[in-house]
């Protein structure tokens, strides 16, 4: 039946062997003095001492528990840490931190400058908006004034034009009335002449011109009125 054992050399190895082989393995497991000396802490100072006193098992197997404090590890570990802590406390950390603080201060100053600039810009914007509002109000006033002026001028011009038109209309109406009267007089005169001639031809004697004219005018007036 197979079981498993560990063999040990300069490095840890494992392999599976039979139960029968296991005894042989353990029997031949003892390493040479040189191999053992290189492998771990070694309690034997001479090869003779090792051969005489070391058991078949590797001497390293009998080493201290991992819970046992190794003085050399404690000393080197403590020394390394103390050196690091002291250098960090008095030199390395302050040097790095100084740069960090300087940069943070620079950034903080930059932020403050940016805040100041932002405040100034906002004030300028407010001032500009105020000026813009004033200018707009002034412009509106001027536009309103111009509009009123234009309106009054337009009204005045309109009144003038209307008056001129009315005058021209009256003149035209008067002229038309005069022309009409003249035309009516001409028509009445012509009609009187035609009526007087017609009567003269019919009666053989000339009628009274005033009576004929009066009759014609009465007839024309009656026609207009009707």
């Amino acid at each position: 039946m197979l079981t498993a054992v560990v063999t040990r050399g300069l490095a840890v190895e494992v392999r599976f062997v039979t139960v029968e082989e296991e005894g042989e393995e353990h029997g031949s497991e003892k390493m040479s003095y040189e191999e053992s000396k290189d492998f771990c802490e070694f309690p034997y100072e001479t090869e003779e001492e090792y051969e005489a006193e070391a058991s078949a098992a590797h001497p390293c197997l009998e080493g201290p528990s991992p819970l046992a404090v190794e003085v050399k590890e404690l000393a080197w570990g403590a020394g390394a840490f103390v050196v690091l802590a002291l250098l960090m406390r008095f030199w390395l950390f302050p040097a790095v931190k100084k740069g960090m603080d300087a940069r943070y201060a620079l950034i903080r100053d930059g932020h403050e400058a940016a805040d100041t600039a932002r405040g100034a810009a906002r004030a300028e914007v407010a001032e500009y908006e105020s000026a813009l509002a004033t200018v707009k109000a002034e412009a509106n006033e001027r536009v309103d004034a111009a509009r009123q002026t234009l309106e009054s001028e337009r009204a005045a011009r309109l009144a003038e034009v209307n008056a001129a038109i009315a005058a021209k209309r009256e003149a035209a109406a008067a002229e038309a009335a005069a022309s009409r009267q003249a035309a009516e007089a001409d028509v009445a005169s012509a009609a009187t002449e035609v009526a007087a001639r017609t009567i003269e031809l019919a009666t053989g004697k000339a009628p009274d011109a005033a009576a004929v004219r009066s009759a014609v005018e009465a007839s024309m007036n009656a026609g207009v009125s009707s």
Partner: peptide, 29 residues
């Protein structure tokens, strides 16, 4: 295969000295 015998903990944590009083743990520290 019935089992794998694991090396003792002492062994897997033990390293030969790089020089007297200075081993791998000291080197790492």
């Amino acid at each position: 295969v019935l089992a794998l015998e694991f090396p003792p903990i002492n062994e897997i944590l033990r390293w030969r000295d790089l020089f007297p009083t200075f081993n791998k743990v000291a080197l790492i520290a």
